[in-house]
Design a protein around this nucleic acid. Sequence first.
DNA 1: ATTAATGTTCAGAA
DNA 2: TTTCTGAACATTAA
Length: 278
Amino acid sequence: MVRGIRPALEGATLVEFVRLPCKRRPLLLEPSLAVIRRRTSGKRIQAVRRRAKRVVIELETGEGFVIEPRMTGLMLVTDPPTVEHLRYAWRVRGADGIQTVQFWDRRGLGTVRLLDREALAALMTPGKIGPDALEMTPALWRDVLSRTRRPVKVALLDQALVAGIGNLYASEVLHLSRIHPATPADRLSPAKIRKLSEAVQSVLQLAIEHEGSTLSDGTYRNVLNQDGGYQNSHQVYDRAGLGCPRCGRSIVRIVQAQRSSFFCPVCQIDPSRRTARR
DNA sequence: ATTAATGTTCAGAA
DNA sequence: TTTCTGAACATTAA
């Protein structure tokens, strides 16, 4: 997302931030539209960055837009999937003239905020949300996972612990590292933690290279409104009843923290049954 | 026609 | 203190 919108925005001048005529109830916008427009119109865009799952558009003033797409939000530089779910747009003037980046959100759970310099700096460093998943090391993982007894799958989704891993990727990561999703986070062996650390890197890097996963209900799409490709590489996510690509056994779906987890009962051995021998 | 599910996050309760 | 529950929303599949 960030790489897609960066060429249009970085170095350009924000002509105006606009609310699009979406009929539905507005999603969270802070502060008010009028205040945002007053503070940002005419300002140069210094950088477009990512922090965990958030898009950050930093202005010359030090202030910055923080966009949280959540479930169905998209940043687009072309026509959207539907016109009625268009929420906001950034109209900018750059080297190539006037361009528009739009925020489209079907479910409307996404948020757009304008943060001041201090709040932005606080967001970019680990604090309220944890270190970025792609910045983690085995040592950091050990530290973070030792802090909770919750199931490792639930811990991976806790953005205060580690920021940037979503539900689908948590299942994929655990399958690749052959860890049962119900394993208490603080009971993973150093060897498993190392595997987990490597799996997070490879799954997320590959997913980014393939421009994400477009699921059956057409959720994520790139800035050109094109499908991603990583759904074709899913080993377990949304594959309950289908064969594990590694061993052939049927993939199982369970619910943890009110979210679906998918895993292979053969490749990912239940830790409580591992030592069950007499 | 209901119900449950969905790449999520957060406040408030247990 | 830590963990769990439900709500915000729109759409689709069962």
